[in-house]
Write a protein that binds this DNA or RNA. Sequence first.
DNA 1: CGACGCCGGGCAATCGATTACCTCGCGGCG
DNA 2: CGCCGCGAGGTAATCGATTGCCCGGCGTCG
Lengths: 334, 334
Amino acid sequence: MARVTIREVAARVGVSTATVSRALSGAKRVSPAVVEQVRQAAEELGYSANGIASALRRSRTDTVGMVVPSITNPFFTSLVEGVEHALQDSGRQLFLCSSRSDPALEAQRLRSLVARQVDGIVISPVHGTESTGAVSWAAGELPLVQVDRYVTGVESDWVGVDDDAALRLLLEHLAERGVRTAAFVSSELTSSSTELRVAGFQEHSARLGIGLAPGGMLLGEYSIEWGREAMQRLLAGPSLPDAVTCADDLIALGVLQTCAAGGVRVPDDLLVTGFDDIPFAALSDPPLTTVRQPQVEIAAEAVRLLADAERAGERPLSRLALQPSLVVRASTGG
Amino acid sequence: MARVTIREVAARVGVSTATVSRALSGAKRVSPAVVEQVRQAAEELGYSANGIASALRRSRTDTVGMVVPSITNPFFTSLVEGVEHALQDSGRQLFLCSSRSDPALEAQRLRSLVARQVDGIVISPVHGTESTGAVSWAAGELPLVQVDRYVTGVESDWVGVDDDAALRLLLEHLAERGVRTAAFVSSELTSSSTELRVAGFQEHSARLGIGLAPGGMLLGEYSIEWGREAMQRLLAGPSLPDAVTCADDLIALGVLQTCAAGGVRVPDDLLVTGFDDIPFAALSDPPLTTVRQPQVEIAAEAVRLLADAERAGERPLSRLALQPSLVVRASTGG
DNA sequence: CGACGCCGGGCAATCGATTACCTCGCGGCG
DNA sequence: CGCCGCGAGGTAATCGATTGCCCGGCGTCG
């Protein structure tokens, strides 16, 4: 466990630590012969630089922090994978944290990332207002870009999906299928995208002449369990709507499960739609109609914006709403 | 973006940096009055300690690294969540990396974690032999525990599931259901658990008089896509076995999808089983019979072993094979 | 032939927090 | 009254790598 330091490498070769550092990093011209000797010695001693010391001196860590509300939600894991992939090209690493949908935990993660001097942060904030303090503080300390969700009143870039367009796609599809009444199952209105999805649902359903079923606006959380429960509530009501629109795929999968258990035939008795197009959306019973978020592009843009922010100090803020696409499957009769 | 250092806090209060450090960490007795002043000043200046500098001096980071083969596989995300949860109690953080099933990337992640001086590493190694070098090097540098999979020839603790017992549960269940022939769809034999599962399948199926279907040992990778493809191969064969046993739930979900698309009725024409019991196993068409891994316990044990390893230097190695439990659902007629 | 520039390489400051060791002052005790 | 112990707090070394500045030597050019 004894770590070998640059000093020992230098001693073995008979040069100064400065030369070893330069030889290994290639920062300044060092004679090829010495470089080779240093390489040799480092190899033999099993030397690897102490990243902490290096980070302290350079005040860079070549690491980007990412904070997501949940690490078990496949939508976020796809996003994480995309970011990691995008970072790889620039030889940087990802430090991933989960805030577990808890603003306090989120604040703690952010403090920790800042303390660890990550070069930048990619965050999907938990809450539209309760996350504001921590996020804007962090944004003041280092480059930060929000993805998917955002908190208001923070000076930072944002990349996500065009929620309004997504709801338009979904509702126009449902209208074509002859839907006259619909329910909307979502999370509590605590995040930007949730609000936009609800607003989009209301706007486009009104425009298309689709009525909201009585008791049909169900707000809980983004989870399979909530989808199950919400559908149970709808089943307990006087009559079913023509369609249930869900604010994410997990909710929709829960809804489908309860339908199957309760003898409701999808799509014959009821149409169901999701949001995100997670890999499991194609595997449910029946396969789920949903809108696909361009996760790869979102991730790539986020990394690009971060790189921009590191280079230039002051820049105009970017807010990129990328376009979703409709994926029709059997849950709407596709 | 200008970071405020301990020196500025000290200057403002009119004490030395040593006192500020002690006041904030509570390491040594400092008069309450001074502690309060320091708190005040730190608050006003927005001071937060530089974790890098602190880590360099203390050579501890209060951070544990975790490396998993895939971050999109729900089994691993559950494991990660469990580890994060377990760490929380001791006030430590998790630094998560994905090796993407690539031994080279895995080695890089390990080097990076060691360079960053994490206090310990939890890893589920990619490959039974190709991971050996990097893992055993890392295990020599700092406390390391393997979870789920392990590489041979490395001195480290391991926690996972009793694969043999799991296959026994599954095959006894299938035997009770009258299964006489079965296929086994798994990953290539590149990891310990894969080997153990295949061995367990062979041993217990032989013991129970279940024959391996011709061309029924299909080795690919742990993914939905491979499950789909493997089932297509089985469909292309002369006849179907009574059951398809899969080495993880993702594979099984792919198998089920192809069955649905190909008109094979599960469980009427064919029984299908998975492994892990990921959340989506209950949502497929039909819901999947599988064995549940005790992820929470695995994670908790891993963290406990790590803590032990940090405290005591030399200890006997632990290899904990925890017991799985059978979860019967409709895919075997449950 | 002298001066200048360039190149390889060394010295030592530096990043920011922690901490071993020291000092000072005060109270108690022999 | 002198000495000791103790608690509060300061001084400065330390963690390990990086890098600005400097030096000596050699090649080149006027």
